[in-house]
Nucleic acid binder design. Sequence first.
DNA 1: TGACATACAAACAGAAATGTATGTATTAAT
DNA 2: ATTAATACATACATTTCTGTTTGTATGTCA
Lengths: 220, 220
Amino acid sequence: MARRTKEDAEKTRETLLTAAAEVFLQRGVARASLEEIARAAGLTRGAVYWHFQDKLDLFWALNDRARTPHADMLAELVSRLGEGSDLDPLVELEGAVQAAFVSIENDDEQRRLLTILLMRCEYVAEMELAFNGQREADALLQSSLIQIFNRAATCGCLAATWRAEDAALACFLLITGLVQAWLRTPNKIGLAKEGGILMHAFIGSMRSGAGRTSSPAAMT
Amino acid sequence: MARRTKEDAEKTRETLLTAAAEVFLQRGVARASLEEIARAAGLTRGAVYWHFQDKLDLFWALNDRARTPHADMLAELVSRLGEGSDLDPLVELEGAVQAAFVSIENDDEQRRLLTILLMRCEYVAEMELAFNGQREADALLQSSLIQIFNRAATCGCLAATWRAEDAALACFLLITGLVQAWLRTPNKIGLAKEGGILMHAFIGSMRSGAGRTSSPAAMT
DNA sequence: TGACATACAAACAGAAATGTATGTATTAAT
DNA sequence: ATTAATACATACATTTCTGTTTGTATGTCA
């Protein structure tokens, strides 16, 4: 068999990408061979080299697809809080994080990609570019959080104990830490459930008039 | 040159291990070749194969050396709180974490090893054993934290907002997250300094009578 | 209806790493 | 002073992956 129509070619490209993700996940990026990827896609290395320059090119294509919804949601939240709104920043933050958790938890492809980037990758040489990309994304997320907490501070919502920067960093670490823990233990931790409860407790404890509890979900 | 005395041989074994750590760090575990490691140690592959079975054996030897001081310190803290002591669990916890931070920050070898385990490794196949080892260590750390926060809860130190398990998980995520952030950005984040401040704010906000600040260090 | 470009498959050559086998200079013991 | 084991270095054979080249059947366009 040989030349297919353009749409067919695009399909095989997609097939190769998903196959690559699966092989990367199971074998790690470094030891994954193009032969394995091609066979996992039901093709040969010829197809791989037609659509991609080499393994790195494949990796970049996958890397570009990995998007954590945190960033977008929080950036949007920042702009929503920007106008002279009477929204409670901390309430909105908790909602946005919860929504992001749900979004991540329901996207199997994202989960695979995040797992690859976190635990199936060695960040050296050319890979460092991907690493820097992650750091930039993290920095963006943090700056969004800082803005939100600054807003909360001026609102008087944020307890005096917390500087906005520290609150943002703590919040960032909890969010990313929860995602990591969820990635590592497939079934042990539910991101939206346990993660949501934890974020609720945390954000609640940062509130200026701390001490009250408005339980967000039924807990045993 | 050939056979050395026993102590000499042990020395070359150490040389090989530190060389391996350096090569793993710079090239990643997967693409590091035994030839590179041997040359970095000023030796040949013969020496490597004499002292170690293969690259994995080398990796295990290094993996065994990677010890996060969190675990020991917190376990010791648990036993210290165990007796009918009038120690404030949260104060002691903060001190232990701070001490662990200082300890990690001053140990260059630990930093290299942790970096390798976190960012220069692909956890597949045989490597999954190392991964499981890390998870077990994490579980131990968490159980220590849970005990500490349970103690704090019975003392009345812990705010009612927090369940002990959630507080422990949040604390765990902050600690490990800070270490990770410190590993990723060599100079940006000081573990003992910025990390200490953050942990202080966090633990302070979990205290039952929240709102007061007893600054632990001079901040600008 | 050719003719050319496309979308692959198959074959080939080269590099690199691995494991093993062998060589060898010491050292320690007898 | 031999001898045998030790602590490596060196040489070899094999595998594996990679990049490229060549082949080829099929769309597509004039």
